[in-house]
Design a binder for these strands. Sequence first.
DNA 1: CCGGACATGTAAAGAGTTACATGATTCC
DNA 2: GGAATCATGTAACTCTTTACATGTCCGG
Lengths: 185, 185
Amino acid sequence: MSLPHAILTALLEKPSSGLDLTRRFDKSIGYFWSATHQQIYRELGRLESEGHIRALPSAQPTRGQKKSYEVLPAGRAELARWTAAAQDPKPLRDALLLRLRAAAVVGTAGLDADLSRHLDLHRRQLAEYEEIEKRDFPPGNDSAQARIQHLVLRAGIELETFWIQWLTEAVAELPTVTDPEARTS
Amino acid sequence: MSLPHAILTALLEKPSSGLDLTRRFDKSIGYFWSATHQQIYRELGRLESEGHIRALPSAQPTRGQKKSYEVLPAGRAELARWTAAAQDPKPLRDALLLRLRAAAVVGTAGLDADLSRHLDLHRRQLAEYEEIEKRDFPPGNDSAQARIQHLVLRAGIELETFWIQWLTEAVAELPTVTDPEARTS
DNA sequence: CCGGACATGTAAAGAGTTACATGATTCC
DNA sequence: GGAATCATGTAACTCTTTACATGTCCGG
């Protein structure tokens, strides 16, 4: 139930068309809630029919024509409601940890290469976040909005930092492991 | 595409019935790949029809009767293939971060209570993990399997530690923020 | 006027969630 | 023999992903 609220947030920050939103979901909002253009168009249709957003009157409604949306008061109220409502955290779901657990049973052959690849990807992501931090959050600006947004970005930075550290450890530890295949089968 | 492999891993560790698996997915494997009993039964049916697992011959096949499964060589091979195959990490998806971003636009009213609640939940989870670590990974045991399993558990511990630290910071920072509602609307 | 980029959409399949249904066993 | 519990399963729905379809605009 988060995608509509992600879109409302994005539209409040700046009224946009479907494609604009898609591009913004490739970065920014997408760093912690990704969505494809198919999801976005469908959700825009729903939000409009519910009276949470409306198309800006300027554009024509035909296909292939750009159509921008803005948030209506009802949409803003719904977003505020959702933001304040209690929600349980979702349990962790990570395929890499699962693969490691599987590797403990069927052997680690081939896994280390992908661990190294993930390590590299996380290093790139961290570099990107740090670039953004340097650009958008120079010391001194501590408006309310900037502080919250910086807090969110720091979560991303610290999570990537964790993965880099953990994967480094994992890569160092894995190759020395003897393949259990020989013993268990 | 991870659930069948989670089940294969669990069954290799120990042949089980659907309900046994459901219980094990409430802890252990479920700490990083959760599943409900409905998903598990459906997937057991699929895995059996594909020849990856089979019901242990002992039990009768009627409804309400316990039925245990074991992994066949084809299932083990499939699991080994999947474990070694390259997979891209899934982008972060976290509703709490999204809510914070929304709060930067519509105001933080009500959010701090839920942040505190999450903080408490993560503290409990960390305590549970540390209990497991103390019980299952006493210093000295460094078999191949134990080292990999410990590595996975440490990921959980460090992730919870991160959230506790970050949420503590967030809770400390939020209440001092002025509500943007007054300015932006 | 045609090919490519831009822009909005539809269709179908896969994965996960929620609610409900049914049979067997056990305990009183 | 009735209620509670154990155990397996169905059905319907939502969310996400992948592939495809259609229309517009612009440069050559």
